[in-house]
Simulated scan of single mutants.
Amino acid sequence: MSNSSKPTRPAALANWLMIVAFLVVLMVAVGGITRLTESGLSITQWKPITGAIPPLSEAAWQAEFALYQTTGEYQTVTGPAGMDLAAFKFIFFWEWFHRLLGRLIGLAFAVPLAWFWIRGAIPQGYKGRLVALLALGGLQGVFGWFMVRSGLAGTMTDVSHFWLSIHLLTALFTLGGLIWTALDLRQLATGASRPARWTGIASWVGAILFVQLLLGAWVAGLNAGLASDTWPLMQGQLVPEYDRSRGLAWAVTHDPFLLHFLHRWWAWIAVIALVVMARRVKPLVRQASVAIHTAFGIQILLGVATVWTGVALWVAVAHQVVGALLVASFAWGAHILGRRTA
């Protein structure tokens, strides 16, 4: 039997993509822990194959620690604070686990993709999209290394917040693509003849949400969450003092106080946009509307809690994870609106 005559399996493909999407959310959580524990620069080399194996001897651990000791982060921050080998092993674990999970996600996508492809189970028009999602996963790994490398240059004590935002937003874009494609395949399994279309409302709500996610990534990269532990005021006033000496463009992209302020108040613009979308979605699929409302409601509460707790680890990680779930619920809502157009 030729591949063209073999039955396709859109429902199975959809379930597989949803599993990969769950793994991406888990990856976002582990990435958040890696960032918040300052673990990202603990591994100074990129070894896509052999790097999956952690140090297995005391000599190997000492060699890795010696490499870390050459970084600006160790020489300026963690070294003077008294970091020993045991403390280094802790941060090494999170960066190693983050990279290992990335490899596992790559296998969880590539191996079933090859199997479905060989079996002729991929419906017409979906092979290119699935290959594009695989390429995005590969780019995610490359961007992650560029991010790490940015923190190893010279006397840098942290990674570039620009590369961090590219790394995180690529993961969230991939998550949205996985959800959208899985939903298209589920529709195909139930007899829908055409995939959903991207709508105007998805464009402008998505653009507003993108700005909020970008601001959040920059806040994380610059440790700007620590700029204030009060809400709604900062420094006892609504608009905090910030560095105006280098111009507004520099302040918007670099000043932690201004970025913290923008992130906490642009959130309400995002909420209004998401409410508009959810109201359009509700008559079509009520559960999706509830998911959107629930995600941004919890996200707002976790954002305030992150500020009040001085960026407590698990509160901040939960804030990042729910941000990923908000992207997933947005993709769901946008897909529903696109079905009506299709």
Score class of each variant (00 low, 15 high):
residue 123 P to F: 08
residue 172 L to Y: 13
residue 196 A to K: 04
residue 103 R to M: 08
residue 155 T to S: 10
residue 152 L to M: 09
residue 105 I to K: 07
residue 118 I to E: 00
residue 166 I to W: 14
residue 89 K to N: 04
residue 107 L to C: 04
residue 107 L to A: 15
residue 98 H to A: 01
residue 177 G to R: 13
residue 197 R to M: 05
residue 173 F to S: 13
residue 150 S to F: 09
residue 130 L to F: 08
residue 147 M to T: 11
residue 190 T to K: 15
residue 166 I to Q: 11
residue 126 Y to H: 12
residue 119 R to V: 00
residue 130 L to R: 07
residue 152 L to A: 06
residue 130 L to E: 05
residue 158 D to R: 15
residue 114 A to C: 07
residue 132 A to I: 13
residue 207 A to P: 11
residue 167 H to Q: 06
residue 142 V to A: 15
residue 202 A to M: 04
residue 171 A to H: 07
residue 112 P to Y: 05
residue 124 Q to N: 11
residue 93 F to R: 03
residue 176 G to M: 07
residue 145 W to F: 08
residue 101 L to D: 09
residue 207 A to R: 11
residue 173 F to A: 15
residue 110 A to Q: 02
residue 213 L to F: 11
residue 161 H to M: 01
residue 182 A to W: 07
residue 156 M to P: 00
residue 190 T to H: 06
residue 110 A to M: 13
residue 211 V to F: 13
residue 219 V to M: 15
residue 155 T to I: 06
residue 93 F to C: 01
residue 216 G to T: 01
residue 166 I to G: 02
residue 117 W to D: 04
residue 132 A to L: 15
residue 97 F to P: 03
residue 206 G to T: 05
residue 141 G to R: 04
residue 155 T to N: 12
residue 221 G to Q: 04
residue 84 D to V: 07
residue 84 D to P: 05
residue 83 M to W: 05
residue 102 G to N: 11
residue 109 F to Y: 15
residue 187 Q to H: 12
residue 170 T to M: 14
residue 90 F to Y: 12
residue 195 P to R: 04
residue 91 I to G: 04
residue 189 A to Q: 10
residue 125 G to L: 03
residue 93 F to K: 02
residue 95 E to F: 00
residue 127 K to A: 14
residue 151 G to V: 12
